[in-house]
Every structure is written in C-alpha cells, then in structure tokens.
Amino acid sequence: MSSESVIVARFDSMPEAHIAMGRLQAEGIEAWLADEHLVQTDWLYSIAVGGIKLQVRPEQTQRALEILNTDYSSELEAED
C-alpha cells in the first residue's frame, strides 16, 4: 500500500471489492484494498470505517474511475 493513494470506490462486501480490484488490475492499474479484513470481522465496522476502500495511485485515478464506471451490460446478448 502506498502512502499516497486515492480512494476510487467503497464497498460493503469483500466479493464486490475484490471483483472491482481485479478489474482494475486486469487493465494494468495497481490497486489495493484498505480495511477489508476489519470489515470482514464484523460488518458493523464497515459503517464505522467507511467500508472497504479501493485505492489507486493518484496518477491512475481518472483511468480507474473510467474503468469502474463503464457498463458493459448492453453488450451482453440475451439467450433465448
């Protein structure tokens, strides 16, 4: 984890946080989670610490947000 980081997303559940982190890493963006283990011990901690935080380096913030905000659901074909 870097001392200089930007929070690009917050999550209440570890699976969602890891999916988002994996998406960024697959695109070549260094990303890490903060407070994931604390939140996992008791979900009430999530409220206290502001959830699981997905963080990136400041220079990768814009690209990370673009990736996380891209919705590919319209590209999926409905199976009949």
Rank of each mutant, 00 (worst) to 15 (best):
S3C: 02
M1S: 11
A78Q: 09
Q55K: 13
E30K: 12
A64L: 03
S73E: 06
H37C: 09
A48Q: 14
I52V: 10
A34M: 14
E27L: 07
S73G: 05
E36T: 15
K53W: 01
Y45L: 14
I19Y: 05
A34S: 13
E4P: 02
L33P: 01
H18F: 11
P58E: 06
A9Y: 00
D35H: 15
E75R: 11
D71S: 07
L65E: 10
A48N: 13
T41N: 11
A78E: 11
F11L: 10
V6M: 10
Q60F: 08
R63D: 06
I19S: 05
S3A: 07
H18Y: 12
D71C: 04
S74H: 13
Y72D: 10
L44P: 05
D80H: 07
S2I: 09
D80C: 03
P58R: 04
K53S: 00
I47G: 14
A64N: 04
L65K: 03
G50E: 09
V56P: 00
E59L: 08
L44E: 15
V39E: 01
V8P: 02
L76Q: 08
Y72A: 10
Y45I: 06
W32N: 00
I19D: 08
I47S: 14
W43M: 13
A31E: 01
I19G: 03
E66N: 12
D35L: 11
S3H: 03
S3G: 02
N69W: 05
L33W: 03
G22C: 06
A34K: 15
L33C: 08
V6K: 05
E77F: 09
E36Y: 12
D12M: 08
I47P: 04
M21L: 07
T61P: 03
E66I: 12
Q25R: 15
S73Y: 04
Y72G: 09
S5Y: 15
H37K: 09
V56Q: 00
S5K: 08
Q40N: 06
D12S: 12
P58K: 06
